[in-house]
């Protein structure tokens, strides 16, 4: 088995989800090559080479690879995919964007968002917003897979010294160009990896009142999340959304505050170790999956909780 993993990064640091994806690769078993496609991303290449489970790093350095444009990354990966039995990428917006493109170029049916490796050709993935798990066996010669990071522990980031090989990029795809990026700046830890997540929903009522969610999060050094309703109402930015169409998180503690617990929201947090629900409606579906629930007005409980944690 020889496995190619595509690293996610921002040209300066590796995204933690790459370490989870590498663990899925390790479960498949075999020789692991990590591709860093970027522009002036030497620090990422260094990080990649230091990962113990990686035996080789491929470094493709080109301005056309700077911004993760799917057309260019897909072209690059398509050129080398046939050398491997498996090609893996994180099931993040980065991986979801380019890997299906490679799959069509390779005439392969991608296996999306796997949560378990049964064997080298058989994988488990959630469907219907996680209300069912399907085990599928792939008959394609190269298996293209995106990996749900919360379902696999991160591999050790250090301890290795893989050889680095340059990979030349061809010509940039005509007809697509990067214009701008509007990155949410937050002092809070990253939602995808934080051990504690505090999420607010429509029940919080306004953007101003969302500050009580942030205060609680700050007290616990937690990340802030939100339901879709809260994002749509403008209480929180889009990248805070947890759920079927937002981020999937699995922290030690997940606080769902003023969130009803629609199946689409549950899809993004039901694997959390402990779920705390604060909602004034005792019938809210969130209580069916909560480890601990408080039936009360969030404007009473949350400030009290924040106070007691001081």
């Amino acid at each position: 088995m020889s496995i190619l993993v595509i690293a996610e990064h921002d040209n300066s640091a590796l995204n933690a989800n790459t370490l989870n994806t590498l663990n899925a690769a390790a479960k498949i078993g075999g020789d692991i090559t990590l591709l860093v496609a970027g522009s002036d991303a030497q620090s990422v290449v260094d990080e990649a080479a230091a990962i113990a489970s990686v035996s080789k790093v491929l470094s493709a350095n080109d301005a056309a690879l700077a911004d993760g444009l799917a057309e260019n990354i897909a072209w690059l990966v398509n050129g080398i995919a046939a050398n491997y039995t498996h090609v893996l990428a994180p099931a993040s917006n980065f991986g979801k964007n380019f890997l299906p493109r490679v799959a069509a170029m390779q005439d392969v049916m991608q296996v999306s968002d796997i949560v378990d490796v049964v064997s080298a050709d058989t994988f488990v993935r959630p469907i219907y917003a996680g209300n069912a798990l399907v085990t599928v066996k792939s008959s394609d010669s190269v298996k293209l897979i995106t990996v749900r990071s919360t379902a696999f522990d991160a591999v050790e980031a250090t301890g290795g010294s893989a050889a680095v090989e340059e990979l030349a990029f061809g010509e940039a795809f005509e007809g697509v160009s990067f214009v701008s990026r509007d990155v949410t700046v937050s002092e809070r830890p990253d939602l995808a990896t934080a051990p504690i997540v505090v999420s607010g929903g429509r029940g919080v009522g306004s953007k101003e009142d969302f500050a009580i969610i942030e205060k609680l999060a700050e007290k616990m050094n937690a990340a802030v999340g939100a339901s879709r309703a809260a994002v749509d109402a403008g209480y929180a930015p889009n990248d805070f959304q947890v759920g079927q169409t937002g981020k999937v998180v699995a922290p030690d503690i997940y606080f769902a505050i003023g969130i009803s617990g629609a199946i689409q929201h549950q899809a993004g947090m039901r694997e959390s170790k402990v779920i705390v629900a604060i909602n004034k409606d005792e019938e809210a579906p969130i209580f069916q999956i909560a480890t601990y629930g408080i039936v009360a007005d969030l404007f009473d409980v949350v400030p009290e909780l924040t106070e007691l944690l001081s």
Binding site: N93, V179, V183, T184
Partner: peptide, 8 residues
């Protein structure tokens, strides 16, 4: 995107 928004 996972980090916010981007325009292409």
């Amino acid at each position: 995107t996972d980090a916010g928004l981007e325009t292409i």
